[in-house]
């Protein structure tokens, strides 16, 4: 496939350095384009497993089902932990009125637990989920490409 794309230094490393002076060309000159015959990145991906995935062979099916299951379990686990942490607060406040009336340096503990603490907790949960989910996906891609 013919494909035109702007030159960049990372591409230059693969097929001969381009003159770096090109960056400083006068603005009237059209920007130089480099033409490549095929996208080298496409070939890094293993053809075989990709086809298996795309054609839904039993093996390909099993691979993607595993990934879906792993991501779903991760989502449910993190969601459940957050729900239990937050969801136990109302019960605790009703069941133990003494707990609801505690104060920390003059501020009621309940207001800190409800007004401040949940937000870092939610952000942290999101950060953790993002990290693990991306790790799952990277592992999957590595497995397909090798």
């Amino acid at each position: 496939m013919w494909r035109a794309k702007p030159a960049s230094l990372t591409d230059g490393a693969q097929s001969g350095k381009l003159p770096s002076a090109e960056q400083a060309d006068s603005p009237t000159k059209p920007k130089r384009q480099r033409v490549v015959l095929a996208d080298s990145r496409q070939q890094k991906t293993g053809i075989r497993p990709r086809v298996e995935l795309a054609q839904q062979t039993s093996w390909g099916e099993m691979l993607i089902k595993d990934l879906i299951g792993a991501q779903l379990r991760l989502g449910l686990a993190i969601g459940l932990v957050v729900l239990v942490l937050l969801g136990s607060l109302p019960v605790a406040f009703v069941a133990a009125p003494g707990f609801a009336e505690l104060t920390v340096v003059g501020i009621p503990l309940a207001w800190l637990l409800l007004g401040v603490v949940p937000f870092p907790l939610l952000f942290g949960a999101g950060l953790l989920y993002n990290r693990i989910a991306e790790r799952h996906e990277r592992a999957f891609v590595d497995m397909i490409e090798n």
Binding site: G75, L76, I78, G79, V82, L86, P90, W111, L114, G115, P118, F119, L122, A125, G126, Y129, N130
Partner: peptide, 17 residues
């Protein structure tokens, strides 16, 4: 105070699922 918590937590659910 559950309103702001719920408003923010909705995005966690959205992200997870």
């Amino acid at each position: 105070l559950w309103y702001p918590i719920g408003f923010a937590a909705g995005f966690l659910a959205l992200m997870l699922f």
